[in-house]
C-alpha cells in the first residue's frame, strides 16, 4: 500500500489542517495500516514534545544594542540608512551629460562589471534621465531592501555609476576604490556564499554642496529610480554615497533598469 500521501495527512492533522473528507480518509487508513498508526502515534508524541520546548526569554541587550547601532549610524560619516539618504540633501556637481560621458569608463573594468553591464547603454529616449539597462537571463528581481554607505571623499572628476557585481572578488576590487572608508561590513556581508545565488547592484552618487537632493524614489523588482532634485536644500556632510542592493539569481529573463532623473 502506498502510505506516502498519508504522511502529509498525519502531519496536517496535528495542525488542524484536514478537511472533513481528508480526516475521514486518514481515519479509515489508520484502522487498516499499523505502520501509519505507529507513525501517527510517534508524531503525536513529537508534537507534544516540541510544544514542551517552549520559548526562551530574550536577552535584554538585544534591542538596546540595535538601538545603539541605529543611533551611531545617524552620526556623520557613518553608514546611513536609505531613509536618511533620501531625506538628506545631496549634491551632484556633475550634470546628466557627465553621466552619459561616463559610460565608456564604466565599462572599462570587466573584472568588476559583469557581462550584462558591459552591454549597458544610455537611454537616449528618456529626456533628462540616464538609464542603464542590464539584461541577464539569470537575473530574478530586486528585493525591497538596500544598504547605503556614506563615503568620505569627493572627487572633482567623479561621475555617477551603476555596477552589477557577480563575485566576492569583484566586490573586493570594487570597494578598493574607496580606500579611505571602512567597508568591511559590506565585504563581510556579501561573501562567496552570497554570490552563489545572488548578485549585487552597486550605485555610486556624489554630493559635495548643499543645493541638490538625491532621493531613491522607486525600487521595484526590476527598476531603481533615483531623483536628483535641485530645489531642496540639503547638507554637505555626506559627500558621496554607495548603495548596495542584493539581487537574486534564477528565474525568467528580466531587464533591470537603473535611472537617474533630474527634477
Amino acid at each position: 500500500m502506498n502510505c506516502n500521501k498519508y504522511l502529509d495527512l498525519i502531519s496536517a492533522r496535528l495542525d488542524g489542517q484536514l478537511t472533513v473528507q481528508e480526516d475521514a480518509d486518514l481515519t479509515a487508513h489508520l484502522q487498516t495500516c499499523p505502520a501509519c498508526r505507529a507513525i501517527a502515534k510517534d508524531m503525536d508524541g513529537l508534537h507534544s514534545a516540541l510544544a514542551a520546548v517552549g520559548e526562551v526569554d530574550v536577552p535584554p541587550e538585544l534591542s538596546q544594542t540595535v538601538l545603539s547601532k541605529i543611533r551611531a549610524e545617524k552620526r556623520p560619516n557613518r553608514r546611513r540608512t536609505l531613509r536618511q539618504l533620501s531625506a538628506l540633501a545631496a549634491c551632484l556637481v556633475l550634470c546628466v551629460t557627465a553621466w552619459y560621458v561616463s559610460l565608456p569608463d564604466l565599462n572599462s573594468d570587466p573584472q568588476v562589471l559583469s557581462d550584462a553591464w558591459n552591454t549597458a547603454s544610455a537611454g537616449q529616449t528618456v529626456p533628462s534621465a540616464v538609464r542603464y539597462v542590464a539584461e541577464d537571463p539569470k537575473f530574478k528581481s530586486l528585493p525591497l531592501s538596500i544598504d547605503a554607505y556614506s563615503l568620505s571623499k569627493t572627487d572633482s572628476a567623479f561621475v555617477p555609476s551603476a555596477h552589477l557585481l557577480d563575485s566576492a572578488d569583484g566586490l573586493t576590487r570594487f570597494l578598493a576604490q574607496f580606500p579611505a572608508d571602512d567597508l568591511s561590513l559590506a565585504e563581510n556581508t556579501y561573501d562567496e556564499s552570497f554570490f552563489l545565488t545572488n548578485r549585487l547592484l552597486a550605485v555610486v552618487v556624489q554630493e559635495s554642496s548643499s543645493s541638490i537632493t538625491h532621493t531613491v524614489s522607486e525600487l521595484t523588482e526590476d527598476s531603481l529610480t533615483i531623483l536628483r532634485d535641485t530645489s531642496v536644500p540639503g547638507d554637505n556632510d555626506h559627500p558621496r554615497w554607495l548603495m548596495l542592493i542584493p539581487t537574486q539569481l534564477a528565474g525568467p529573463e528580466r531587464t533591470l533598469t537603473v535611472e537617474l532623473i533630474d527634477q
Binding site: 538585544l62 534591542s63 544594542t65 540595535v66 540608512t81 533620501s86 531592501s145 538596500i146
Partner: peptide, 14 residues
C-alpha cells in the same frame, strides 16, 4: 537577531 532588526531599520523606507 540584531542583524535582522538592523536590516529592517535600514530597509524600512522600502
Amino acid at each position: 537577531a540584531q542583524e535582522a532588526f538592523l536590516n529592517a531599520w535600514r530597509g524600512l523606507k522600502f
